[in-house]
């Protein structure tokens, strides 16, 4: 286990070194982060100019949700998306062969290989927004709420990772499917709002088909103290289910993999 942590550390160090070559990416991420945030705040201001409650969420609670959305986006764009895009490229070019001949779990290797360090800016922005929203809202969340929030956020991270891995694994059968990752990105946009505001069918889709609810709404609900024990247990189960399913699917994919060109 300690070996594996050291291994992940070595990979990250290397990815950071690689990324440091592209300083422009830092300014790009920074600019994009602030622009996106300005748009999100603008739309919140418009809505709360007409009402003081959206599907049970107050303005500051929704602002906290936007912050969590940013934290999750930052995580996805820093760790998950770069690794999965790299995996798709490797399957297409056949360079995944090098990963599969390494004496280490291939899923672990493909999951930690790329690391877009600049996108951590979104995580920092998100944390700042959450802290600001909580401070403006007045009552600080209880310790229990904070613990529930951190746990559900971590579980949400696991669920999102598993979902992306399953999408990327499809490449083992269809080789060239770069577009498939867009499925997640476009649906994830919907996570800017609590899934409760959507009609039931869409809500169900956003929970189980593309697990946006677990990634953003559930942690936000936990933070503002509106999550039941059953929902917490459900999140844990969903995380386990998604992770195991992704693992099994990955193994089948590796078996089917033939490498690009013989």
């Amino acid at each position: 286990m300690r070996d594996r942590i050291a291994l992940v550390g070595t990979y990250m160090r290397l990815a950071v070194l690689n990324e440091l070559q592209y300083r422009a990416n830092f300014w790009g991420s920074l600019l994009e982060g602030f622009l996106g945030l300005a748009v999100a705040l603008g739309s919140l201001a418009v809505i709360f100019g007409h009402t003081d409650n959206l599907a049970g969420w107050s303005a500051m609670e929704l602002l906290a949700l936007v912050g969590i959305y940013y934290i999750m986006s930052g995580y996805i764009q820093t760790f998950v998306q770069p690794s999965m895009e790299r995996l798709l490229r490797d399957v297409h070019k056949g360079t995944l062969d090098f990963t599969l001949t390494k004496p280490e779990d291939a899923q672990l290797l493909v999951s930690v290989r790329a690391f877009a360090v600049w996108n951590l800016i979104y995580v920092l922005l998100g944390i700042a927004v959450v802290v600001f929203a909580l401070a403006r809202a007045g009552d600080a969340p209880s310790t229990g709420q904070i613990v529930a929030f951190v746990v559900t956020l971590l579980l949400g991270g696991v669920i999102v990772y598993s979902f992306w891995l399953m999408l990327a694994t499809i490449a083992f059968w269809y080789i060239k499917i770069e577009n498939i990752l867009v499925i997640f990105q476009s649906m994830y946009e919907a996570g800017r709002w609590p899934v409760g505001i959507y009609p039931p069918v869409l809500r169900l889709m956003l929970t189980f088909l593309v697990p946006v609810a677990f990634a953003v709404t559930v942690p936000a609900s936990a933070l503002v103290g509106r999550v039941s024990g059953a929902a917490l247990a459900g999140t844990l189960l969903a995380a386990l289910g998604f992770f195991v399913a992704a693992r099994l699917f990955w193994r089948r994919g590796v078996r089917a993999y033939a490498g690009a060109s013989a």
Partner: peptide
């Protein structure tokens, strides 16, 4: 984008 020496270190770890 990085020197081979750094990639070597990765294989050492793997």
């Amino acid at each position: 984008d990085i020197p081979a020496l750094d990639s070597f270190d990765l294989n050492r770890a793997v």
